[in-house]
């Protein structure tokens, strides 16, 4: 099965004619993702790699029966693009764009909740179910079909970890980068139960970082409701207080959101926390 995306995912690309959108649309097509069209206001009627480009999400969904969208629209317009897709009733919206004003995301988040839409991102690498569908910007070849689920707040760190798993023969059911912003759509709390339900996932790798308390809440959820083994890795132990570490959401403030607090929460919930990336991959491989 895998979660969120698979061979039945019919994807549209918002911002398909832009620099990032066009590059990654080609990459996704090459991977085998069923990209069925794109949306760029002002360029409706054009084609991209033989695919139709539409003015609006509404037209695109009507003409292509798309059931998911991925957004590569610049930060100033990305929240509106996400809102358009959510209002149109698409069940999965993946927003790659970095730098969206956080208060705009508060509105988008609650709109998605109201509509029952799964929002992934923003500021994320996307979602991949290896061998089935890739929706995002992650390098395809490092992934390998298998039975480990991966949820991460990071981009390149996720690639590094997935690669470490793959070279040890551990394939993945679905890998999700949830995004590095303070307000993102689906998080650990939403995705862990999905992996728990998925009969093609045997174990979950959870990659957290400083800032917020999502990891602490996830630890409680795991203890109470997740029966599959979970392996955690937390970055940012060396980060100074009050400094934003690249990701807008990666900041320790007022003593809250520290790596220590997250590691402690997982340890108390019986979730092993790896010291290094190799340590993490070795532990999962030996399972």
């Amino acid at each position: 099965m895998s979660i969120l995306v698979d061979q039945d995912t019919r994807l549209i690309v918002q911002g398909i004619t832009g620099r990032d959108g066009s590059f990654h649309a080609r990459q996704m097509l090459n991977y085998g993702t069923k990209v069925v069209g794109g949306v760029t206001p002002g360029k409706g009627g054009q084609t991209f790699e033989g695919l139709p480009v539409f003015e609006t999400v509404r037209e695109a969904v009507k003409e292509t029966s798309a059931n998911a969208t991925v957004i590569y629209v610049p930060a100033k317009f990305a929240a509106a693009a996400a809102m358009e897709a959510i209002e149109e009733g698409l069940p999965l919206v993946v927003c790659i764009t970095e730098g969206i004003p956080v208060l705009d995301m508060v509105e988008v988040y609650h709109a998605a909740k109201r509509k029952g839409c799964v929002l992934i991102g923003p500021n994320c690498p996307g979602v991949i179910s290896p061998g089935k569908s890739k929706v995002g910007i992650m390098p395809g070849p490092i992934h390998k079909p298998g039975r480990a689920g991966v949820i991460s707040r990071s981009g390149t760190l996720t690639y590094e970890i997935v690669n470490a798993l793959t070279v040890r023969g551990v394939g993945q059911s679905t890998c999700i980068g949830v995004g590095g912003d303070p307000i993102v759509g689906a998080g650990f709390l939403d995705l862990l139960p999905m992996f728990e339900q998925d009969d093609e996932t045997d174990a979950v790798v959870l990659v957290g970082e400083i800032g917020g308390d999502e990891e602490e809440r996830a630890a409680v959820l795991i203890k109470e409701r997740i029966s599959k083994p979970v392996f955690a890795y937390i970055v940012g132990q060396t980060a100074p207080e009050g400094k934003r570490m690249g990701h807008a959401g990666a900041i320790v403030s007022g003593g809250a959101g520290t790596a220590e607090s997250k590691i402690k929460a997982f340890t108390e919930a019986g979730v092993p926390v790896a010291k290094t990336i190799d340590d993490l991959a070795d532990t999962v491989a030996k399972r």
Binding site: T156, L157, T238, G246, H247, T276
Partner: peptide
Amino acid sequence: NGAGLAMATMDIIQH
């Protein structure tokens, strides 16, 4: 390259 990997690199140096 990448914020998460940069933090992981710092942590592993300390490790």
